[in-house]
């Protein structure tokens, strides 16, 4: 694995001059796509979303690798087509180099409208890495709730109001849905930790078959944070166990980072304007419920990882 310094010297997939918001952390991962592993031609596809619109305003493009976007709900399907054509042309001897394929989408294009095509592509076993940059709402269209929006967040379709504390109910756990597809590699990563992210990207790309990475990626206007805070807010999302960093290799869970301290999730929440209204005493119940959900998910994850350790110990004995 090259060091970050070495990686930075390689040609990136993504040029500057794109029109992502100031402080948006998404380019951290797009720049990495060609830097984590050698020996492969990389072809990328995008669901409609901020990354797509901000990187490809005709006649300009920030993409230095082949890139295709066709619609919102179907990047997995259109990339299935690209990947399949590659296999046919390779079989026919028209292409000789080894290729790898990346599909990218936000949580709207992945958890919601693109879930069916994602599920289909993963189940069929295409050699495709799907990276979901999860910023917890339809940010490109102006911060509408998605099934990835956390409880209590005020969005433009779940606004806080006289009768509402914002988004009701808990978010969908897409990572676990992807694990249920029995694919070789599923991981959660966070944009604040490029070392962990690059290792995961490398594993996913080098795997022969489908892989899925769910990437926590704070949104400056959507989370209502200062442009210099994205990395810090992502870090705190992991430290408070809101977003555990873990991987599931061939069905076996492994937690990559266990925070040393128990930091209440409210510390992460109240850095963000979208949760600010929950600081009022009457919403204590909501914050408590949020914390319980975080604890429940973390404990569930710990049990999965412990079960793996236990099984491997038994196997050794």
């Amino acid at each position: 694995m090259p060091s970050l310094q070495e990686m930075a010297k390689k040609d990136g997939a993504f040029a500057g001059g794109h029109r992502m918001c100031a402080g948006c952390p998404v380019p951290i991962f797009t720049k990495m796509l060609t830097r984590v592993t050698d020996g492969y031609e990389i072809v990328a596809g995008n669901a409609t979303g901020c990354l797509e619109v901000a990187s490809s305003i005709f006649p300009y493009s920030a993409w230095k690798i082949p890139w295709i976007h066709t619609a919102f709900e179907n990047v997995s399907a259109s990339m299935s087509g690209v990947e399949t054509m590659y296999r046919v042309l390779k079989k026919k001897g028209k292409i000789t180099k080894p290729y790898k394929f990346i599909a990218m989408g936000g949580d709207g294009g992945t958890y919601d409208i693109g879930l069916q095509s994602l599920s289909g592509a993963m189940e069929r076993g295409h050699d495709l890495v799907y990276i979901c940059y999860d910023n917890g709402a339809y940010m490109n269209t102006g911060v509408q709730r998605s099934s990835a929006t956390p409880m209590g967040a005020s969005t433009t379709t779940t606004p806080k109001g006289e009768q509402s504390f914002g988004r009701q109910g808990t978010r969908k756990d897409l990572t676990r849905i992807m694990v249920a597809h029995n694919i070789g590699y599923v991981a959660q990563a966070s944009i604040h930790n490029p070392v962990d992210l690059s290792e995961k990207l490398k594993k996913a790309i080098e795997l022969d078959g489908p892989a899925f990475i769910n990437l926590l990626s704070p949104c400056i206007p959507g989370w209502k944070i200062a442009p210099d805070l994205a990395v810090e807010v992502a870090r705190l999302g992991v430290e408070t166990k809101y977003w555990p960093m873990y991987e599931v290799i061939d069905g076996e869970y492994k937690i990559n980072y266990t925070p040393e301290k128990d930091i209440p999730v409210s510390e992460w929440m109240f850095l963000q304007g979208r949760f600010k209204h929950l600081q009022k005493p009457e919403y204590k119940d909501v914050v408590d419920a949020f914390q319980q959900e975080v604890d429940r998910n973390w404990n569930w994850l710990v049990r999965q990882a412990e079960a793996v350790k236990l099984l491997s110990t038994e196997a050794k004995n």
Binding site: I57, P66, I68, Y99
Partner: peptide, 15 residues
């Protein structure tokens, strides 16, 4: 799209 020597962007935003 598979021509990595001459990378093209397909499906750009066209206003």
């Amino acid at each position: 799209v598979l021509d990595t020597e001459n990378p093209a962007s397909w499906g750009a935003l066209d206003l």
